[in-house]
Simulated assay, not measured.
Amino acid sequence: MIFDEVFTSTVESLLAGKFICPITYTTSYDFLNSDINRERVQTYLYQTGKTLSHIDHEFYYASYESMTPDRRRSSRAVFKQTQQEIRPVVEFLSLMMRVSNDERSLYTGDEIHLAQIVSKIENDKSLLKSLDRIIIQIKGQLKGSVFDKTKQLINSLVKTEILKQIEPKIDIYLCTGKLAYYINLMEFIMTYQAEKFDDIDLDEPVQDDLI
């Protein structure tokens, strides 16, 4: 892929609200790791009212360069919607910590093996109840085996690009930069709480698809 094609693909992904990380968009991520390339992308995004944002260069995304009254109102509405969308992710992270018996949260690049999760849940009624609760949240089907329900959950996370399947026929998945973003967003929510949102300085850059 030639330089201009990578530039175009990267900009289009950013403007579409995608999170550029080494798991989901490897070529674009490598492209943005260059200072010169980031400057060129930043210049283009600025013309659209956006800016290139990142957290420790672990992943990149486009956010508003500044907030207008209309964007402020829209951000509040999307923020409330995002709180609902994050709940299954919170439950999933909690479930995975219990499955792995590890208090460390999942992060970008971590592997998830479907067979291992199913094996743990099948032998623990408490984990099964937690799985069923998440299935209800994602409006899935409670009928079927533990494998079927776990696969539903994993597929929903793949669809939203929180996880990425390594190979189509292999049930091993990688956590993406979007999960890392959600974790940071959850910390934001815990710090400020929804009722304090009106007092938050929305002049700070925010990701337009989530906040």
Rank of each mutant, 00 (worst) to 15 (best):
S28H: 02
D201E: 00
V146F: 00
Y181N: 04
T8H: 10
K143A: 01
L179H: 08
L210Q: 07
D30T: 10
L153Y: 13
D124Y: 05
T24Y: 03
D198F: 07
I189K: 13
L32G: 03
S126E: 14
L15H: 07
P88S: 06
Q141W: 02
K120V: 09
F7H: 10
V78S: 10
K129R: 11
A62T: 09
T108V: 09
M97H: 03
Q152F: 02
N184I: 00
A194Y: 08
L114V: 09
D148F: 10
D102I: 06
D198P: 11
K164S: 10
E167N: 13
Y182I: 06
K178Q: 07
T191C: 04
L127G: 08
I86P: 03
L210G: 03
M67D: 00
R71W: 14
I135F: 06
E195H: 05
T160R: 13
L174K: 14
D70H: 08
P69G: 00
D171K: 11
I121G: 01
V99E: 09
G109Y: 04
L14A: 10
G17R: 04
E195Y: 04
R72T: 03
D208N: 14
L157I: 01
V118G: 12
S34L: 05
L210D: 07
F59I: 06
K149H: 04
Y181L: 08
S100L: 05
L106R: 05
G144P: 02
K139I: 05
H57V: 13
A194L: 11
G140M: 03
T10K: 14
V90H: 14
V41P: 12
F19H: 11
E5S: 14
G17D: 02
T8N: 07
M96V: 09
G49R: 00
I200M: 07
Y173M: 12
E122Q: 03
Y192G: 01
N101L: 08
S74Y: 09
T191A: 11
A62G: 09
M97K: 15
G49M: 00
V146I: 11
L142Y: 12
K159E: 11
S130H: 15
S156I: 00
V11R: 07
P168H: 13
K151S: 12
V99D: 07
M1Y: 05
S53A: 11
K80N: 10
F147N: 11
Y192R: 01
S126K: 09
Y192T: 10
L202M: 02
E58R: 15
